[in-house]
Design a protein around this nucleic acid. Structure first.
Length: 472
RNA sequence: GGCGCGGUAGCCAAGUGGUAAGGCAGAGGUCUGCAAAACCUUUAUUCGUGAGUUCGAUUCUCACCCGCGCCUCCA
């Protein structure tokens, strides 16, 4: 099936194809590891993960890169405040980042590229820019000469031609020919990490990092580059300039930009007190499965207004899916299939895939799944759902989870939440309760139910006697 | 000002030139010893406002109002 994605560069929906005919190669701008990632960061990474998982489920072979910015101004400043070396500081928060990704079910990239591992390649690339007249050194730093790259501004739709060429602009620390020129190499300052270069010791600028690492790992022209919408300008614009000024060929064919996450209708900021890291939410008792669901449920090109109420709603939606899967696994179904339900499952599957293939319309994909959830529950209630239907439903839920991954996460979380109790113990208590119910000793039965409930186990009585349990 | 995203029920949100998906929450009901889960009914004669095009517009055009993001290193 053709998968369409909106390309910021062309402002159109375009089919995704592997340019080399084999593997779909894509790069995602990752995190600057000066602190814990916040949910705005993770909205982007979840959206990219949804894309990558969907591509994989549709048979694409992928080669993916995500970068880790482990040296920059903010890294240096924060490390200093924390009393760490920059490398120590980066190691701590890189580790935390990877843990967060795991908790959110975000699959690791093929290559996790740390900027400090690629400095020689960056220096070499800057040399080529300087040699070709696209960059110039000044006081030990090197700047990209935007005037030398006429296509500058194409991605962001900005016309920067109004800026005076040749006007010498003073900034706080560096000297540039023009205000719009940007730094490729920063001259060393005391107390900062540095690497050798033809222009003296220093460190790479942020933009060159992504250009060089992506081309080193994926080739000089690859399929898709993703990041938050705020990176369109100047970051991605600069990446294109740095790359194409040297190669003379298209750097990336498609650009995917994920819209902003707002909190209570405003941009997250520490001063507004609406700033959430994933850890904040987990500490407050919310589950990563609900966070992932919420982040994934709003199509990526829309701003997502994050609220705690929305997070609770997401948790409830995940529970609805989980409880259907539990019901399907109870067994005791008649063999064969109900043809009418089978047709509905097939239709739901088609609707689900078509929605995702249409620029990752996750909201519509979820609607297809939930319509089937209702149909399956109706059939279960009526005793119409048969073994082959259950299998087909489970397969659809599996396909759903291959992309959304919330069931896998929820299952893990439930196990952790009630980890102290093994099934044998639970079932023994359940038998005790059933016995008490038969004696009509409801005080006793309710006490056991409350006890198990407190331990993370929910009990549901079955029509005609007996009961079953599930983890909450 | 430029570029971009958006304004659909209490909340989240899909969508189409032909008369409003889905989730959550609320109310009532079925089931239950009571619950839980599930199901049923109910909650937008209406899609920011005004005008236009059209047999017909939430969907197209124009204007306006409102929210949000980017505009040199913030996902």
């Amino acid at each position: 099936m053709e998968i369409l994605l909106y390309n910021t560069l062309t402002r159109r929906l375009e089919p995704l194809v592997a340019g080399d005919g084999r593997r779909f190669r894509m790069y995602t701008c990752g995190l600057t590891v000066y602190d814990y990632g916040h949910i705005g960061n993770y909205r982007t990474f979840v959206a990219v993960d949804v894309l990558q998982r969907f591509l994989a489920s549709q048979g694409f072979a992928l080669e993916t890169v995500m970068n880790i910015t482990d040296v920059d101004d903010k890294m240096i400043e924060r490390a200093r405040t924390a009393g760490h070396s920059v490398a120590e500081h980066a190691a701590i928060y890189t580790q935390a980042f990877l843990e967060d990704l795991g908790r959110l079910g975000i699959q690791p990239p093929t290559h996790l590229a740390k900027a400090t591992d690629y400095v020689p390649q960056m220096v070499a690339w800057i040399e080529r820019l300087v040699d070709s007249g696209h960059a110039y050194a000044s006081d030990g730093s090197v700047y990209f000469r935007v005037a030398s790259f006429p296509a500058y501004g194409r991605l962001s739709g900005k016309d920067l031609g109004g800026l005076q060429a040749g006007a010498r602009v003073e900034s706080d620390q560096y000297e540039k020919e023009e205000a719009r020129d940007f730094v490729l190499w920063k001259a060393h300052k005391p107390g900062e990490p540095s690497w050798p270069s033809p222009w003296g010791p220093g460190r790479p600028g942020w933009h060159i990092e992504c250009s060089v690492m992506s081309m080193t790992l994926l080739g000089e022209s690859f399929d898709l580059h993703a990041g938050g919408t705020d990176l369109i300008f100047p970051h991605h614009e600069n990446e294109i300039a740095q790359a194409e000024a040297v190669t003379g060929r298209p750097f990336v064919r498609g650009w995917m930009h994920v819209e902003f996450l707002l909190v209570n209708g405003e941009k997250m900021s520490k001063s507004l007190g609406n700033f959430f890291t994933l850890r904040d939410l987990l500490d407050q008792g919310y589950r990563a499965s609900a966070v992932r669901y919420l982040l994934a449920s709003v199509p990526y090109r829309r701003q997502l207004n994050f609220t705690l109420e929305g997070l609770q709603q997401a948790a409830a939606a995940v529970e609805r899916l989980m409880s259907l899967r539990d019901r399907l696994r109870q067994g005791g179904l008649a063999a064969g299939e109900d043809a009418e339900l089978a047709a509905k499952i097939t239709a739901a599957r088609a609707g689900y895939v078509a929605a995702l293939a249409d620029n990752l319309n996750t909201a519509e994909a979820l609607a297809a799944i939930f319509e089937l959830v209702r149909e399956a529950n109706i059939a279960l209630d009526a005793g119409r759902l048969r073994a082959a239907n259950a299998t087909a439903c489970e397969e659809l839920l599996h396909l759903f989870d291959q992309v959304f991954a919330v069931l896998t996460l929820a299952e893990r979380e439930k196990m952790e939440a009630s980890a102290g109790l093994d099934p044998a113990t639970i079932e023994a208590r359940l038998r005790e309760r059933d016995e008490a119910r038969r004696r009509r000793d409801f005080r006793r039965a309710d006490a056991i139910r409350a006890e198990l409930d407190a331990a993370g186990i929910a009990i549901e009585d079955v029509k005609g006697g007996g009961s079953r349990w599930r983890r909450k």
